[in-house]
Design a protein around this nucleic acid. Structure first.
Lengths: 195, 195
DNA sequence: ACAGCCATGTAACTCGTTACATGATTAC
DNA sequence: GTAATCATGTAACGAGTTACATGGCTGT
C-alpha cells in the first residue's frame, strides 16, 4: 500500500526482478546498460539514496557482508517489493513518454542559427546514433538465447528491439532533415567539398 | 558570455525568436503547442521564474503596460538574447536525447507483470499516441503555407514532420510488441474476443 | 608502486513541480 | 451574474545532479 515511490525507485525494483542480488555499484552498471536507453541512468549517489529508502520501506532486503577488509552490501527484492512493483505497473495509466530532445529543440529555432551549424549538429547526432546503436546491438546480442517465449529475458529483448528500431528511425529523420537543408540552403556549393 | 542557462531558458528564448512579443501566459501556450513534443512544457510558475532570470541577464526585454486595470508584461528577445541563443546552439555538442519512457520501462519488466496488464498498457499507449498524432497534425497543418524554403516556419514544420514520423514509428513498435505478446501468451483464447 | 576499478557515501545546490493565492477581463 | 480564461505570482518541496571524500582490491 505504501505506493508512490519516484519512478526511479520502481526502476531499481525492476532491475532486481531478474533473480540476482546486486550491490549498488552493480545496479548502476546494469542501469547504464539498459535503463539508460528508455529512462535515465541515475547517478551513483542517487542509486544509494534510493536503495536506502527502499530498504526502509521493506521493499528490498539489504545483505551486508564483510568482503575482506570492506563492507559490501547486496540488495534483493522482497515479496513486498514485488507487490509494490506490480501495484505500480497495474495501477498507473500508460503515461506518455517524456522526450528531452535537444537536437529537435535546436532544429526548431533553426532560423536563428547559422545554417552550417544546424547541419553540423545533425551530423554529430548521426554519429551519436551510430554509437548508441552499436551499444544497444551488443546488449541485444548478449540477450540472444535467453529470450525465447517462456524465458527470462524475453521482455528485455523485446525492448531492445524497440530501441534499435527507434534509433534507426531517428537516423532516417536526421538524414531527411539534412537533405531538406542541403536542398535549399546550398543550391550551389556543397557543405563538404569532395576532397 | 553569460552562458549556462538551464535549457528551458534557451527554449524560451527560442520561442521568442519568431518575431512577436509575448506575455508569460502566451509563452506557456506556445510551449504547450510545440515544445511539449520535443522537450517539456514548463509549468506556468517556471515560465515566470525563467523570464525574470532572463530579464535580469538582459537577454529579454520586459515591457510592462497597463491594460485597463491590470498590469500586463510582454517579453521580447534582445540582441544579447539572440547572441546567447546562438552561442548555445553553436557551442553545445549535439547531446543525446533523454527519453523517459514509462511504457518501455514497464515492458522491460514484463515478466513480473500479469500478461493482460502488459497488453492493456500497450493498448492504452496506442490510444495516447493517436491523440498526440491528432494534436501534432493540427500543429503541422497550421504551419502550412508559411513553411516554404525561405520562410519563417520552415523549421517548425520540419520538426513537426519529424515528430509525426516518430509517433507513427512508436505505433508500429507498440503493435509489434502487442502481436509478439499475443503470439505466445494466448495461443488459444484471443485477448479481445471478436464481438 | 601506481593506476584503475570497486564500493559507499555526504553536502550543496538547481531545476522544476504542485498547491495556493489573487484579481481582472470576456463570454454566455 | 457567473464561469471560463487571462495574467501573475509565492511557498514548500522533491528528485536528481555535481563535487567531494574515503578506502579497499586488482592488475601490471
Amino acid at each position: 500500500m505504501s505506493q508512490d515511490l519516484p519512478v526511479t525507485g520502481y526502476a531499481i525494483l525492476g532491475l532486481l526482478t531478474f533473480g540476482d542480488e546486486l550491490t549498488g555499484y552493480e545496479l548502476k552498471q546494469r542501469a547504464d546498460m539498459t535503463l539508460r536507453f528508455y529512462w535515465v541512468s541515475p547517478a551513483m549517489s542517487q542509486v544509494y539514496t534510493e536503495l536506502r529508502r527502499l530498504t526502509g520501506l521493506g521493499l528490498v532486503r539489504a545483505d551486508a557482508r564483510a568482503d575482506g577488509g570492506r563492507e559490501v552490501t547486496t540488495y534483493a527484492i522482497t515479496e513486498a517489493g514485488q507487490d509494490a512493483l506490480r501495484g505500480w505497473t497495474d495501477a498507473t495509466p500508460a503515461g506518455f513518454p517524456v522526450l528531452k530532445h535537444t537536437v529537435l529543440l535546436r532544429l526548431l529555432v533553426g532560423h536563428a542559427m547559422a545554417p552550417e551549424q544546424t547541419s553540423r549538429m545533425l551530423r554529430d547526432y548521426l554519429d551519436e546514433l551510430d554509437a548508441a546503436l552499436a551499444d544497444l546491438h551488443e546488449v541485444r546480442d548478449s540477450l540472444r538465447g535467453a529470450d525465447r517465449p517462456g524465458e527470462a529475458f524475453r521482455f528485455p529483448s523485446l525492448v531492445a528491439e524497440w530501441g534499435l528500431d527507434y534509433f534507426a528511425a531517428e537516423q532516417r529523420h536526421t538524414r531527411r532533415a539534412l537533405a531538406s537543408l542541403a536542398e535549399h540552403e546550398a543550391p550551389g556549393e556543397p557543405d563538404t567539398p569532395p576532397a
